[in-house]
Design a protein around this nucleic acid. Structure first.
Lengths: 368, 368
DNA sequence: CTTGCTTTCGTAATCGTTTACGGAAGTTCC
DNA sequence: GGAACTTCCGTAAACGATTACGAAAGCAAG
């Protein structure tokens, strides 16, 4: 492999200090001419140390590049500066976005994060994850539990340190603090948008009911319809995949029961169904309006650019961390769900702009 | 928030053991009627312990739920059971895929992973990340460095523990082991596929040259063209975004210099340019063949389904971890790049199947 | 000059392990 | 029956920090 050239100012640095023993608090003490106790005090900026010695010690620390050994500190104080994160291993949009955001706010608050992902069956793997996290000495744990089964495993698990769960719409129990993005609101936003556009026949291509997100988004859609005084629309339950949406939509065109408007539980779902329609001469938004959920990268360049719902993962992470940190210190922080936003693009238009091509009356389509 | 019902067999467990002191090796010893030394021996399954006592100790351990305190172990052995991962904070496809895969293999090898993401300016943040990771006592560090600047920062940083860098096509230096997916091969595969299809005018919508991936994929495209005896094609350098690809493609149609075939540096890039074409009545693959790179979720439901290149992140992670673990024990593991695979779908067809609509002769288009 | 109070710093114990060392049984052999 | 080994297990020191306690030095007041 030929290698791309890269600027290096001093490419020897990494080789410089191979495995030299790390300086300890004692080394610093000797160099500074004080006892290790004094060094410890300046490290924890305790008051009982004169300005001059503090200055001197600090200088030595900087000079020899001393850094505190966390294992030792953790051992004696039994409080830690790291928090654990457990996630399902999926590279799905929501979980990953949350994960990255969590790492970010944790780092900014001075915590290191150690992450463990779990896999089926959850009962064992979740408990194991909690245990190893506990072993590594985390002060608290956040579990990203998009799956209902996984959340159940968390409820049934035991753990010494506080556990905070991010699970959309799940109920909290005494010792596991759950927090969730207000995805039901997102679904309502999407559906209401369609209602505002004058659509009365609004179907839902749902996600998997194994996921909180799937359940909650469906609930939001139902609620919005109800609030608008509309009859319940057609609801198809899928698995988030474009493939499922594609095939399901194909079925709809075969039966000629295409709704006026569709709220898709995810952008990927929307992608699949839009293609099925396109292949059959049914155009979005001219013949049917579609709204997605997630605002994945590229959804603004779908054909057509997708109207969708965006979540604020950073806000979610910030809030969750706040709650966990609070729990670690035994105090209660109130959790206000962060609100998703609707981003309107080209896949949804007013009902009156629809071509006559759309089916006569499917408003009475059977539910589920 | 109303809360979704979830099965719980014993929803009190989490509340059971709030902050009860963790049992220590001494507790076990007392219960088992042996000395702590013996317990330690069974813990590290040393030979000098009779089957019967080992059995007894093991039983006690299980009974009281003893688990080793990692801080104490780390302190005395100064070897650790965790590895650090630093990544750029981006939720981009490649880095995230690698990250998840790394966590997975690490866990399966019995290592916990603590991840830190860095941001510009890299010189400081990379060194800081390496330091905090070192503080937490990791045995080695893997840095996912898709950005050239970031890799440079790693080269110039110093670290006591072995650092392994995942940077496509970067050259290694003595103490930082770099490993990379053979993306150049991927790009060659894509381009060669287009060549095999009879195309002679193959352009490249490149990624950002700030990224190794961008540089290496471009190099692969160039090489494939050269090997096929074709003149260098048009190369446009972008930033991975659909937006850039869209606007650039628009420019091409305006100038009526649309190539026969395009190798897009990423699926997102392909998405953008395909839409620009579609809006102007230029069809893929009928008028121009397109190949992407990444195989992101949904690319099989683009319009048309995208021919693309898929990397094997799991293999990459496995190999990298192997190398790092080797380095941690001072031995050299040879690194064979894992090969990406071409997945052929509908966005690329044979040149002779193209409509006459395609431009007369752009083969001599100026490079860059 | 002694007493007593502050300020500043040193000392010892401790956290939960690992590991080197040594001692007590038990076994084998002449 | 004792020497020489094994086999098994207990003890002590160490890892690198924190923290409570106490001592030394400085100063003010009587």
């Amino acid at each position: 492999m030929t290698g791309i050239e890269v600027p290096r100012e001093a490419n020897k640095r990494l080789q410089d200090a191979p495995l030299r023993r790390k300086p300890t608090i004692n080394d610093v003490a000797k160099l500074a001419g004080v006892s290790f106790g004094t060094v410890s005090r300046v490290l924890n900026n305790a008051p009982d140390v004169s300005a001059s010695t503090r200055e001197r010690v600090l200088q030595v620390i900087k000079d020899i590049g001393y850094r505190r050994n966390r294992a030792a500190t953790a051992l004696v104080t039994s409080r830690s500066t790291s928090i654990g994160i457990v996630s399902d291993g999926s590279p799905r949009f929501g979980p990953v976005g949350t994960l990255m955001a969590l790492e970010n706010v944790a780092r900014k608050k001075g915590y290191a994060t150690t992450v463990i992902s779990v896999e089926q069956p959850y009962a064992e793997s979740v408990q194991a994850a909690l245990d190893t996290l506990d072993d590594t000495g985390v002060g608290g744990i956040i579990v990203i539990a998009p799956l209902v089964d996984m959340a159940a495993a968390v409820w049934n698990a035991s753990c010494r340190v506080p556990v905070e769960m991010i699970a959309a719409g799940a109920s909290s129990t005494p010792n596991v603090f759950t927090y969730s993005e207000n995805q039901e609101l997102g679904a309502r936003l999407a559906t209401q948008h369609l209602v505002d556009l004058g659509h009365t026949d609004i179907a839902h291509f749902a996600g998997s009911m194994d996921w909180f997100d799937g359940r909650v988004r469906k609930r939001g859609w139902e609620a919005a319809l109800r609030d608008a005084g509309l009859a319940p629309g057609l609801c198809l339950e899928g698995d988030w995949s474009p493939r499922w949406a594609y095939e399901t939509a194909l079925q709809l065109v075969r039966e000629d029961t295409i709704p006026q408007a569709i709220f898709a539980a995810s952008d990927h779902t929307a992608l699949g169904l839009i293609r099925a329609f396109a292949e059959n001469g049914i155009r979005v938004p001219d013949d049917v309006s579609v709204v997605g959920f997630d605002d994945i990268e590229g959804s603004d360049y779908f054909m057509p650019p997708l109207t969708t719902v965006r979540q604020d993962f950073t806000a979610l992470a910030l809030m969750s961390m706040e709650v966990l940190l609070g729990a670690m210190e035994g105090l209660e922080v109130d959790r206000t769900p962060t609100a998703p936003t609707l981003v309107v693009r080209n896949s949804s238009i007013h009902a009156t702009s629809h071509h006559i091509h759309s089916p006569k009356d499917t408003r009475a389509a059977p539910k589920q």
